[in-house]
Amino acid sequence: MRLILVLAAALLMGPIAATGAVAQDLQVTVAGRDSVVLSPAEVASLPRAKATITAKGASVVYEGALLHEVLLKAGVVSGERLMGRYLNQVVVIRASDGFTSMLSIAETDPVYRANPVVLADTVNGKPLDAREGPYRVVVDGDLRPSRSSRAVVAIEVKAGF
């Protein structure tokens, strides 16, 4: 009987797992401040943008919240106030598989950068799959997608090195 229940549950859950990543909370930490945890609904409600990268010779369009807006929720200094010691900060993006990538804080701020950095939750109009999601940071304008971390679970802003 247990085997039948397990098989039935697996059949029911299989299509759900195959269609996309499970939405989850995102922890954002700014050094010297408290961490904030943003729910998927909070992330989805932030101003959005599109970013295009080339992968295997094809253009791929990602869409999601502006990373700058996510960082504002955690209390980063931005805009015209982003200078001096604040400009020495780095944004560390952590993925579920242990991969990390870094951006300078200026690279996330529209005062310093024309192309957006996006915390994507869709690719080509569809939700990210389990391999890429729940979020992928996409740096629009990069010639290679090396800094476009997938499976992002946490973001940390800290003093530069």
Rank of each mutant, 00 (worst) to 15 (best):
M1P: 14
L3C: 14
V6N: 12
L7R: 08
A9H: 04
G14M: 06
A18G: 00
A21L: 06
V22C: 04
Q27H: 02
V28E: 02
V36I: 11
S39Y: 13
S39W: 14
P40R: 10
A41E: 15
A41Q: 08
S45K: 02
S45H: 03
S45M: 09
L46N: 11
R48S: 03
R48E: 02
A49W: 01
A51Y: 00
T54D: 12
A55C: 12
K56W: 09
G57D: 15
G64L: 02
L66K: 01
L66N: 00
L67H: 13
E69N: 09
L71T: 09
L72G: 03
A74M: 11
V77M: 00
G79R: 00
R81F: 05
M83Q: 03
G84P: 09
L87G: 09
V91G: 13
V92K: 14
I93Q: 13
I93W: 13
I93V: 13
R94P: 13
R94I: 11
R94H: 15
D97K: 03
D97R: 15
G98D: 12
S101E: 13
S104N: 10
D109A: 08
P110G: 04
A120G: 02
T122K: 09
T122C: 10
V123R: 05
V123T: 08
G125T: 07
G125A: 08
P127M: 05
L128F: 14
A130L: 04
R131V: 08
P134Y: 02
P134D: 07
P134F: 07
R136Q: 08
V137P: 01
V137I: 11
R144I: 06
R144P: 07
S148R: 09
R150F: 00
E156C: 13
E156N: 14
V157P: 09
